[in-house]
Design a protein around this nucleic acid. Structure first.
Length: 243
DNA sequence: AAGAGCTACAACCGCTGCTTC
DNA sequence: TGAAGCAGCGGTTGTAGCTCT
């Protein structure tokens, strides 16, 4: 029995602690050859003395191709704030809308940037998202002094309480029970500002593409390619994106 | 220059839900 | 149908590096 305490120690024979470049290489080579999944067998077959869980985490958060490194952009921050207002701490769900970013990264970012200042209210979430968007799309500001809720309603100062926002979201959840529906709702209300906010490349590989690029659409919550004809923008038509 | 405090990030843990048998 | 195993998720912790005093 090798139960020990602390990183770098072993429990039940598995190594813990920071990964070495050699381990990374072994894992990358194995996954590139045999693909993801069956993590417990990966650990054995790749000659890694790591748990399947650890292998999966290392791959997903660090080794997987296409991961972005470095600071999140203001656009990404805005998306995180807005989606957090909808889904709360559903980091993996939020991460699906930020290609190249992992749930762990987003979770860490949220903790260090927002949580430390005290749990931000939903109102604050929305306000900050709003501010970010307005800063990045100043031309819209004159036309739309303040976007209201995600339902596009005008709300008074009194109505911008957390309770109001929560009930708004709850209503939206009823009305739009699935991820696709919710996103469609948000995007329908706000698509112009999103398009202003998100760079074309980011956009192209974000909301409509995601994991589907790998043909990996086996998750119920996975966003599908929305055939949404948002009239004012007509950014998607017959399978082609129009910008 | 050195120690304290802070920040960012990597990694682990425990739980939950799904799949397989 | 239920038990076991596995994958995924969210919460938490450890640590290295940076900044401040």
């Amino acid at each position: 029995m090798a139960t020990m305490i602390g990183w770098g120690m072993q429990e039940q024979g598995w190594k813990k602690g920071p990964w070495t470049p050699e381990e990374d290489k072994l894992l990358s080579e194995y996954v590139s050859l045999y693909g993801e999944g069956r993590w417990s067998s990966v650990a054995r077959s790749a000659g890694l003395n790591r748990s399947g869980k650890s292998c999966r985490l290392r791959w997903v958060n660090y080794l997987r191709p296409g991961l972005k490194r470095g600071q999140l952009t203001p656009q990404e921050e805005g998306i995180i704030i807005e989606l957090h207002a909808i889904w709360g701490n559903k980091w993996s769900t939020i991460a699906r809308y930020l290609p190249g970013r992992t749930d762990n990264e987003i979770k860490n970012y949220w903790r260090t940037h927002f949580k430390k200042k005290g749990k931000p209210s939903m109102k604050q979430d929305m306000e900050k998202a709003q501010t970010l968007k307005q800063n990045q799309a100043p031309k819209k500001q004159e036309q739309e002094p303040q976007e209201a809720s995600m339902k596009g309603e005008t709300i008074s100062d009194e109505d911008t309480s957390d309770d109001h926002m929560r009930s708004e979201v709850q209503e939206m959840m009823k009305e739009y029970p699935t991820l696709e529906d919710q996103c469609f709702s948000v995007m329908s209300q706000d698509v112009a500002s999103w398009l202003d906010t998100i760079r074309e490349d980011d956009f192209r590989f974000s909301l409509w593409d995601l994991d589907d690029r790998k043909g990996n659409m086996d998750h119920d919550h996975q966003p599908t390619v929305f055939s949404c004809g948002v009239d004012s923008n007509s950014f998607y038509n017959n399978g082609d994106f129009i910008f």
